[in-house]
Design a protein around this nucleic acid. Structure first.
Length: 506
RNA sequence: GCCGCGUUGGUCAAGGGGUUAAGACGCCUCCCUUUCACGGAGGAAUCACGGGUUCGAAUCCCGUACGUGGUACCA
C-alpha cells in the first residue's frame, strides 16, 4: 500500500472556526497515525473573496494548535505549488479534455440568460430550477449550438464556462469512511460549472485535479460537501479512474445554539468561534479567539477532537500524542454536535491542572506582565501557580488569583469587614504583627499557630478574624488558604499589608 | 419544493438483538474547607413517534416527524 497523504484545503476568506480546526485536526491525526504526509493546500480559487492576511492567519492558528506541517507547507516538496491561484494553468487542459471526451460542454449563457431560465422554469414544486439534464438542451451551449457557431464564439473569445454533463438516471455511489454507502441519482444533480469564465476552476474541478496531482490518498472534509460528492466522483471516473480516488470522509458539522456555526456569526453566541482573534477588514469588527480568551492549545484541540469522536473508553482528556496513537476515522460520529461552551471551559480547567509547570509558568508570567506585574522570582511564581491553579478555568483567571502575590492590592473590599470592625480587632492585629515580627521561622503552620493562640488569649473566635485577614492580604474574598498566602508573600509584606489595611478600615 | 445526511438525558456521549441503558459537562443535595475553588459521596434527567421482523428491539426493516446541509460562474 502506498504512503498515506492527506490534505487540508482552507480558503482564506475569514477566521478559522471550530469546524475548520477540527477538520484539520482529524486530517492531521490520521496522517500522523499512519506515518504519512499532511499537506495544506490553499483553496484560493475566487480571488475576489479572499482577504489579505488570512492565509498567514490560518498558519498562525495551525501553529498555535501544534499542527503546522513538518516543512513549510507552501514551499518545497515535489507537489507544489500549494496555492491554487498559482496552479491556474493546469486546470484548463483537464476541462478541455472532459469536453473532448463528451463529459462536459461549453456554456455561453450570460448571467441574464441564467436568471431568465430560473424564472421560466420556476414553479411552486421547483422553486430553484437547476441547470441540468432537463434544461440544458434549451440553453446556449456546445450541446445545442451548431459546430461552426461554437467555433466562431470560441475564436472570438466569447465568455464561456465549462459545465459537467451529468448523465441521465445513473446511480452514483461511493463508500464514505464515516457514512459508509452513500448514493445519488445523477439526474437530480445539476451541471456544475467546472471552469469559470475567468479561467479559474471551481472547487469541484480543483480538488479533483489537485488531489490527483498531489497523490492524496485520504480526504476528510465537512459534511456540507457531501451533496457535491457525486460531481467529484464522476470527475475522478472521467479523468483519472475511480481506483485512484482518495478515500472520503465527510465530517459531521459542529453546531451553534442556532444551527451550523458560521464564520459570519462572529461573537453573537457569547463565546469564541475562531481559534484566534480575527478582525473583519471591511467592518473592522474584532472577533475574539479561543487563544485570546485564555484557552490552552492543548485544551482546544482536545475538546474539538472529542466533539464528534471518542475512543470508546471513558477517557476524555487526551494529549496530541495520545490522540495520534488512538485516533480512528471509523469512530467519528455521523451526527452533528452542538458546541457546549461550559464543557469547553471544563477541558481548559483540566488542562491547566495537567499542563507541565514550566509551560504554564511562561504563559502566566507573560499574562501578568501585560497587567504591569513584573516577576523576578520565578521559583516563587511556580509555588504560586501550584497553589492557585486549581481555581483557574481560563488563563486570565491567574491575574486575580496570582497577581496579589506580587503586587499589593490597590483596592480592598472594606465593606465586607467594616460592619464588624472594632477596637478589639485593631488590638488583635497590632499584637499579631508584633508577634510575627519576632519569629524566625516563616512558615504557614507557624503563622497559623501564632494567630490561633493569640485569638484564644484574647478570647476572640478565629472565624471573626480570618475574613479581615484575608481581605487585608488579598483585597477580597478569594484565594487559597490565608496563612499560605502570608508565607509566600513574606513577613515584611504581610505586616505591611495588615498595617495599611487597618488605616483603611479606620 | 427537491435531493443528501442525521436523531440515546438540557449538552457531549458508550452501547449495535437479552445491560439495573456506562461515563463526562451542567444542575441539585450532603461532606471537606471559618473565603472561593479543588476533592469526596449521593440525586434528578434519556433510547423522537408509529408500524413491522423476533420468544425478545435503544439495537434490524419500513413509514412519519423533526433537525441539518445542498440546491451559485462560493468554498
Amino acid at each position: 500500500m502506498s504512503k498515506v497523504r492527506v490534505r487540508f484545503a482552507p480558503s482564506p476568506t475569514g477566521g478559522l472556526h471550530l469546524g475548520g480546526v477540527r477538520t484539520v485536526l482529524y486530517n492531521y491525526l490520521f496522517a500522523k497515525k499512519h506515518g504519512g504526509d499532511f499537506i495544506v493546500r490553499i483553496e484560493d480559487t475566487d480571488q475576489t473573496r479572499f482577504v489579505t492576511g488570512a492565509e498567514d492567519y490560518i498558519f498562525d492558528c495551525l501553529k498555535w494548535c501544534g499542527m503546522i506541517p513538518d516543512e513549510s507547507p507552501l514551499h518545497g516538496g515535489s507537489f507544489g505549488p500549494y496555492r491554487q491561484s498559482e496552479r491556474k494553468e493546469s486546470y484548463r487542459k483537464y476541462a478541455e479534455q472532459l469536453v473532448a471526451d463528451g463529459f462536459a460542454y461549453y456554456a455561453f449563457d450570460t448571467p441574464e440568460d441564467l436568471e431568465k431560465m430560473r424564472n421560466v422554469f420556476k414553479t411552486t414544486e421547483n422553486p430553484s430550477p437547476q441547470y441540468d439534464g432537463k434544461v440544458r438542451m434549451q440553453m446556449k451551449n456546445s450541446l445545442t449550438l451548431p459546430a461552426d457557431e461554437i467555433k466562431k464564439l470560441l475564436d472570438e473569445g466569447a465568455r464561456h464556462v465549462v459545465r459537467i454533463k451529468m448523465p441521465v438516471d445513473e446511480t452514483i455511489s461511493f463508500t464514505d469512511l464515516i457514512h459508509h454507502e452513500v448514493s445519488f441519482n445523477s439526474s437530480l444533480v445539476d451541471d456544475k460549472v467546472l471552469l469559470k469564465a475567468d479561467g479559474m476552476p471551481t472547487y469541484h474541478l480543483a480538488v479533483v485535479v489537485d488531489d490527483y496531482l498531489m497523490q492524496i490518498t485520504h480526504a476528510f472534509r465537512g459534511e456540507e460537501w457531501l451533496s457535491s460528492a457525486p460531481v467529484h466522483i464522476l470527475l475522478w471516473k472521467y479523468l483519472f479512474g475511480l481506483d485512484k480516488m482518495p478515500q472520503w470522509a465527510h465530517l459531521p458539522l459542529i453546531m451553534g445554539p442556532g444551527g451550523k456555526l458560521s464564520k459570519r456569526d462572529g461573537a453573537k453566541y457569547g463565546f469564541p468561534v475562531f481559534a484566534m482573534n480575527w478582525t473583519n477588514q471591511k467592518t473592522s469588527e474584532l472577533t475574539e479567539g479561543f487563544k485570546e480568551k485564555g484557552f490552552l492549545p492543548e485544551a482546544f484541540i482536545n475538546l474539538l477532537a472529542v466533539l464528534g469522536w471518542n475512543d470508546g473508553t471513558e477517557q476524555e482528556i487526551f494529549s496530541m500524542d495520545e490522540m495520534i496513537e488512538i485516533f480512528s476515522i471509523e469512530r467519528v460520529h455521523k451526527a452533528g454536535a452542538k458546541f457546549d461552551y461550559e464543557k469547553a471551559k471544563w477541558f481548559n480547567h483540566e488542562w491547566i491542572k495537567k499542563l507541565n509547570i514550566e509551560d504554564l509558568r511562561l504563559k502566566v508570567k507573560e499574562l501578568l506582565l501585560a497587567e504591569g506585574i513584573i516577576i523576578d522570582d520565578d521559583s516563587l511564581l511556580i509555588k504560586v501557580i501550584e497553589l492557585v491553579k486549581d481555581r483557574c478555568t481560563l488563563l486570565p483567571d491567574f491575574i486575580q488569583h496570582a497577581g496579589f502575590f506580587f503586587k499589593t492590592p490597590e483596592v480592598l473590599d472594606a465593606e465586607a469587614v467594616k460592619p464588624k470592625w472594632n477596637e478589639e480587632k485593631v488590638l488583635f492585629f497590632n499584637d499579631f504583627c508584633n508577634r510575627m515580627d519576632g519569629i524566625s521561622i516563616w512558615e504557614f503552620v507557624e503563622i497559623e499557630n501564632i494567630f490561633k493562640n493569640l485569638a484564644t488569649e484574647k478570647n476572640i473566635k478565629p472565624g471573626e478574624l480570618l475574613l479581615p485577614l484575608r481581605i487585608m492580604l488579598v483585597g477580597g474574598k478569594f484565594g487559597p488558604a490565608v496563612f499560605q498566602i502570608a508565607e509566600l508573600i513574606g513577613k515584611e509584606e504581610t505586616i505591611k499589608r495588615i498595617q495599611n489595611a487597618m488605616k483603611v478600615f479606620g
